[in-house]
Amino acid sequence: MYDMKKILPGLIIFAGLMTFPIWYNGGDAGTLPKPEKPSNAKECVRPTEYMRTSHMQLLNEFRDTVVRESERGAIKEAGGVTYDDKSLMLGCMKCHVSKKKFCDECHTYAAVKPYCWDCHIQPKETN
């Protein structure tokens, strides 16, 4: 081996960068999110699977239809319950009352920072 004084530190830096998640976590996987389920309803406006993966697309759709086409129609659900208002604060948050206990749980875990609250006024929450 030649030039190991230069190559070895280089390789160590490389291995350090590549294994960043391993040593940064240090075996600590963090806590899994536990979003608080609403007490007053059993079914959401869409199936749970869809909401888990794609709620942001639905909300985006709501925003576009409400803000750009001023269509604040009701959202019907197969369960027979009618949810009024395509609205985050007047619709979704009627059941999912707490931003902290519902939205933030998963968003913090997945490091997502949705910009809902750039326009909406964040609900005041104690705790």
């Binding site: 998640p21 391993i22 976590n25 888990r52 697309q57 998963c106």
Partner: peptide
């Protein structure tokens, strides 16, 4: 084709902490 990011992160963090879990679909 949306996927469940929470399950994915659980798997990815599991891989990085040498305790991988495959959870959910």
């Amino acid at each position: 084709l949306r996927v469940d990011i929470i399950n994915i992160k659980q798997l990815a963090v599991g891989l990085a902490t040498f305790s991988p879990v495959l959870h959910g679909e």
